[in-house]
Write a protein that binds this DNA or RNA. Structure first.
Lengths: 238, 238
DNA sequence: GTCTATACACAGATAGAC
DNA sequence: GTCTATCTGTGTATAGAC
């Protein structure tokens, strides 16, 4: 699977996402007309991403946001009870995007090697597709209040556990060599994160998301595949 | 080389660092007595790191800093002309720590394989030793003003180029296999960053810096070493 | 549902006593 | 060299007109 194919299956527009958020927060949002609410939520999120990318969420003032969205301060507060709530909504929904999609991908495959590939690629493609959400959830994680922080930390552990488990079951089937899988999973995660944290770098280097994902998988497989089988079975899964 | 040995060679205390900063900024710092200035600079930096780690530099108020250091607002402004300058000083010095030390390590080795190992480990050990500095330079990079930002970006490229060049020269000597070395260097960097960005995770997993560094090197070598030579020369450099 | 005007808190920064 | 007191701008948030 490459990114183009991935998009066909998973594509959901930023409008769709805004609609999800609207439905989840119907009671706390003062605007009741779905169409207007969704349209403005989309505008707000995009503005938040643009501003926070440059100077961070904390440094973004509500006046900045008002200017960028073209909406007044009063209107903004009709959509969110405050800046804190806005942050929290984006964080929570960001994580739910990651979780939902990753679970779906993971469930699609059985064979550990294929599954590992799918999950690694899937995560990268997701992060490409929802790149502002991914960047934001990572960079602004520090700013959420302690009570919500637990949720975020457990999400982090959860996505890592998916990979760890694949490596472990692959070891049981003699497909992957035995090792500290938790540590390997962390390294994989670090490389995946690289894609959305330093996207500007790869645009400059002219590296496509497919190239990046393939390179990452090559690295992982060079390390994880049981050595003796490497030469013999190399072509089996390609 | 392991972390313990590394420390013996490169160890410089946070007091030493504070002294370096003092000497570099003698003219802009109002306090002229070296001993007091250095002692307080050290206190300020440590406080900045503690507070920014939790909520980010932007969210830290000068009053927070005053409370944490036990110094008054007035005193703080005798050390720095403003919050912006404080940020800039830490960023600049952080990068100079990285650059100086990495250059030194890189110059010590000749053989590409050894050199690659040394540079990878060196970077991780450095980031362990100066972990607040590394974390801060990464997370607060967005907040510096555009004019200084160029310096920071070029530093980023510089450290990556060191690794790219090692891989390239290793390829010329048939030690590493041909590949997109720029991309590989990026991946290596991402994994190195993982150590100081998610230090809490590894403390929790009980993974030592030596284990982490060795694991990373294993991954890199499994991928980079020219395949045919792998089995034959495996023990040569260990 | 969206706007303008404004309340009130707190930020960064400085002056001047000690 | 360090402190307290204070200036001034800007931040978040709300009230109430349209």
């Amino acid at each position: 699977m490459n990114y183009k194919e991935f998009k066909k299956i998973y594509a959901s527009s930023s409008r769709d996402i805004a609609r999800e958020v609207f439905l989840e927060n119907r009671d706390s949002i003062q605007i009741k007309k779905e169409k207007t609410a969704v349209k403005n939520l989309e505008k707000i999120f995009n503005a938040v991403f643009r501003i926070s990318y440059k100077k961070g969420f904390q440094a973004m003032s509500m006046r900045d946001l008002s200017r960028e969205t073209g909406m007044s301060l009063g209107s903004l507060y009709a959509y969110f009870s405050g800046k804190e709530k806005l942050l929290c909504t984006i964080q929570t929904h960001g994580w739910s995007i990651i979780k939902t999609n990753l679970e779906q991908i993971s469930a699609t495959y059985e064979n550990p090697r294929e599954k590992l590939r799918a999950v690694i690629k899937g995560h990268i493609f997701l992060s490409e597709f929802f790149s502002p959400w991914f960047y934001f959830t990572f960079m602004e994680a520090r700013n959420i209040k302690p009570s919500e922080l637990e949720t975020v930390k457990s999400m982090e552990e959860y996505t890592q556990k998916i990979v760890t488990n694949i490596l472990r079951s692959g070891e049981d089937q003699d497909i992957f060599k035995p090792d500290n899988h938790e540590l390997t999973a962390s390294m994989i995660k670090a490389m995946q994160q690289e894609w959305y944290l330093k996207r500007w770098k790869y645009r400059k280097l002219n590296v496509s998301v497919d190239q990046f994902a393939d390179h990452l998988i090559d690295i992982v497989e060079a390390f994880c595949l049981a050595q003796k089988k490497l030469l013999v079975e190399d072509k089996s899964c390609r």
